[in-house]
Structure formats: structure tokens, C-alpha cells
């Protein structure tokens, strides 16, 4: 597995957490929540191909 993907996910996570804190402290909780959701969606899109690979591997291993 490409280690760059892990660093990207970690980077996105840290930046989204910081943005969440900054927006919450400024009283914009709605925008903070939207930012967090956007971060989750971005990370999911980044790993979706790996998840698909995992399911295929499980299917092949157990002959499902």
C-alpha cells in the first residue's frame, strides 16, 4: 500500500480538525460541522478504491 495515501489522510485530518476548532471558536458551529463532513467525504473518496480492493480480496479468499 502506498504510504503517501496515509500521509495525505493524516494531513487532511489534522487540517480539518484545526479548521473545525477555528470555526467553532468564532461561533460558526454550522460551518465547522460542514467542514468536518466535507473532510470525511474527501477521505472516503481517497480510500474508496482501496476499500473496493479489500472487498474483492475478501471475496476471492473465501470464494464468495
Amino acid at each position: 500500500m502506498d504510504i503517501d495515501l496515509l500521509f495525505k489522510i493524516a494531513g487532511v485530518g489534522i487540517l480539518v480538525a484545526v479548521l473545525n476548532q477555528v470555526l467553532s471558536k468564532a461561533g460558526r458551529e454550522d460551518q465547522a460541522m460542514m467542514t468536518t463532513l466535507t473532510g470525511v467525504i474527501i477521505v472516503l473518496m481517497m480510500v474508496i478504491s482501496k476499500i473496493s480492493e479489500l472487498f474483492n480480496t475478501v471475496r476471492d479468499t473465501f470464494n464468495l
Binding site: 495525505k8 494531513g11 487532511v12 487540517l15 480539518v16 484545526v18 479548521l19 477555528v22 470555526l23 468564532a26 460558526r28 474527501i42 481517497m46
Partner: peptide, 16 residues
């Protein structure tokens, strides 16, 4: 907030 969001958005785009 605007200054911080500007910098962090840039970093996010770069990371992604």
C-alpha cells in the same frame, strides 16, 4: 477567521 481559513484551505488543496 478569514485569514486562517484562507491559509488552511490552501494547505488542504495542496495535501489533497
Amino acid at each position: 477567521v478569514y485569514k486562517t481559513v484562507g491559509i488552511i484551505s490552501g494547505l488542504l488543496i495542496v495535501v489533497i
